[in-house]
Structures are given as structure tokens and as C-alpha cells.
Amino acid sequence: MIATKIGKKSGVPDNYTRLGEYIAAAQEKGEKLHQFWIRNCDAGTNIEDLDLALLEIEAVRRQKPDIADKTYHLVVSFRPGDQDKLTKDDLMAIEAEYAKALGYADHQHVAGTHINTDNFHMHIAFNKVHPETLKVITPHRDFNILAKVSREMEKKYGLAIDPGMTDGKKRDPNKLSPAARDYEAHTWQESFQRHILKYQEEIIEGLGKAKNWQEAHQVLAAYDISIKLRGNGMVLMSADGQAMKASQLDRSCSKNKLEKRFGVFKTLQRDRQRSSLKQVQSKRSYKARPLVWNRNSTALWKHYIRCKTHLSQHPSMMKRALKNWKMFLLAEAEQDPLTMILIIAHQDLLKIIQFKNEQKEIEFRKHQ
């Protein structure tokens, strides 16, 4: 189990009603609602009570007009096979444990589990405003709380062990993060993290020679990477918004160790930004590319890129198919039988990657 908080995006209004309706509808393509329930609302506990429950929740939230972020959105991803081990009562009990640990046991929230071809997962949307005291709760160091509950629930229900980023030596530092694995499973494109790990040694070597934050920024800019503060740590970010924890690159790149070397974090200075960006051309920057490449890929990938370049010229249904490489291949398969070869190749590769990750985790744990 991997429990991930979905943070509020900058500039996007906090819309609890929309999130609640999304959880109940399972709107992503190929996704369907599995189970759904509501907690701590007088309106009721079932999906047919949702409209009234959302009005009730919004009435509480409106009493805190000065608070911009009043929602805690949690996604719990399960491993293949876990779904068959869990009843609705089990899922509700797991949700209740997360709520209790985060301090939201008495807060209004909706929860639902979704099924698609890639993974089984649970959404929980907590109203951070207590319905009686109106106190706004924001958990401190919640990543530790989420990891602790996940490990406890895995043990209690006999689920597959999926160590989180807070599990220290129990985690292989070169293993893709859950976010990177999900990106590859949903898009069939190489993740930012997989790309960066190819250049891990030379990036670490370059950072090792840096004497201050500006030089560190320049080293990373040569790979089209930016480094930013997030929560209590640092993340490396791609131009398209993908992120990985800096410590996932190497332990020497954690926030504490980098600030010990360079002092308090400083952003890239604008007068040096242009010279840094010029260096990008001399290195391999991250670009979207298929996870699987064979002789059938080249022409299709070029066609996909051309279509994306002229996105405005396509009807809305085609625009959805152009959202990522996976959706494009699935749509194209109806017209081009050769596309099925690529689809099968991607599916087989993801199964192999999953098997290798599991074997690697087993071997890694044996040496702890």
C-alpha cells in the first residue's frame, strides 16, 4: 500500500464538491467505482446521500472563508491481488485508521475505491474543518503517519508489503517511486525518474564539485532539472511538472545534507538563468518517449507527436486519445493492427518490471 497526499495546486480553487463528485463517479477512462461511503454527515452514509452530504460539508466550510486550503485528499494505492483480500468492511476499517491517525476521525469525509486496468486504489477526501469546533486540522509530518498506518494495515490484512520513502534502509534507493511507476503504467511513457537515474552517477559527480547553490542549479539545469523546496524536503522537477525526491537520486542530495554544504536554500538567480539554460543543449534533457521502442514505434510516435502539435485541429474525442501515448495506442489499434504489437509489448514490459521490482525488493531485504 502506498498512501499519498494530493496537494492543492497553486492557483486552483479548493473545490470539495467537485472532488466528492469525482470520487463517486470514477471519471477517468477505463475506471469504475468499486465501493463508496460517507462519514460524519447527518445526510447519510451512502452514495444516494451524496448531494445532501456535500451541501452539509460546504455549509461547514463556508464558516472558514479566510482559509484557502480546507481539503485533505488522500489516495491509497494497493498492489495487484490485494483487492481480492479486502471486503468493504475491511476497506472502511483501513480508511478509519488513516482518519484517526491524521486527526480526522470526527471530520466529514467521503471515500471510494476505484478499479481500472492498472491498479486498485482508494480516494479519501477529508474536510479539514471540524463540523462542531470549526478548528482547521493540518497534520504535521503526515508522510510518517501515512507510512506507519500503511505498514500496520499491510500486516493486519496480509497485504503485499510496499515500503514507503520513510522506511529508510528498508527501501532500495534505485527503485522507482510509486508516483513514477504510476506515471509509466498510465502513460506507457518513460518517467522522469527513470530518465534521471540513467545519469545518476554524473549528476552526483557534478553536484559533488558544486561550491554553492548557484553552481548546483547550473549542474542540474544541464539536464533540464530544477530543484525546489517541497514540504520538509526538496524535489527535482522536470519541465512538464513530474517530480522526484532529491534524496531518491542519492542520500547526499537530501535537504539536510545539501543545506549543510551550501547553506539555506537559494533559488536560481535570474541573471544566471540564461547561461544555465544554454548548457541544456549539451546534455540529454528529459523528453517524452515510449517505454517500449521497436521497429514499429518510429512512424507511430512521429504521427502521435504531429497530432499533439496540432491538437486544436482535432475533435474532442481525439484530443482525449492524444492525452498520452497509451491512450493514443489504444485508440489507434482500431485502425492499425500493427499497433497491437506495441500494446502487447508495453503490457509485457510492465509485468516484467513489476516482477523484477518484487524480486529486487526481496533480495534487498535479505541483506538488511
Rank of each mutant, 00 (worst) to 15 (best):
F143K: 13
G7N: 10
L229K: 11
K29L: 08
N116K: 04
K9D: 06
A93N: 14
Y304F: 15
T138A: 14
F36P: 02
C307Y: 02
I225F: 00
P178I: 13
S282V: 03
H346G: 13
S282Q: 10
H140R: 12
T17C: 03
G208W: 01
M318H: 14
Q189H: 01
D90P: 00
K266N: 10
L300H: 10
T45R: 13
E184I: 09
I47E: 11
T339E: 02
K198I: 03
H123C: 01
D172C: 05
H314F: 12
H130P: 03
D118F: 10
E190T: 14
G158W: 15
I23H: 03
Q218W: 05
D106K: 08
V110S: 04
V75C: 12
N46M: 01
K156E: 13
T87R: 01
H186A: 15
K170Y: 07
N232K: 04
E31I: 04
I38T: 09
R284G: 07
E361T: 09
S252Q: 11
E259L: 02
K278Y: 02
L338D: 06
L291N: 05
A24G: 15
S282T: 03
Y157M: 03
D66C: 04
L159I: 05
Q281E: 14
S247P: 00
K360D: 11
T45E: 08
K29T: 09
H107Q: 06
S191G: 10
Y286F: 13
H123A: 07
A243T: 07
Q218R: 15
K5L: 12
K209I: 06
L19E: 04
T267F: 10
G208H: 05
D42W: 00
F192S: 15
R251E: 15
G11I: 07
Q335S: 13
I204N: 10
Q347Y: 00
I38M: 02
D69P: 03
F328E: 14
S312Y: 15
D49S: 07
A68D: 08
S297P: 14
Q313P: 02
M1N: 00
K266P: 01
E56N: 14
T166R: 14
L55S: 13
Y223P: 12
L300R: 08
Y304A: 12
K360P: 00
A239K: 09
I341M: 10
P163G: 03
R274E: 14
C253K: 05
L134A: 00
H121Y: 10
E358I: 09
K366P: 01
K319W: 07
H121W: 08
L207Q: 02
L197F: 13
T87H: 01
G112L: 02
P337N: 03
I94Y: 03
N40E: 12
D240V: 11
G168H: 13
G231Q: 01
V12I: 15
I67C: 08
L322G: 12
S254K: 10
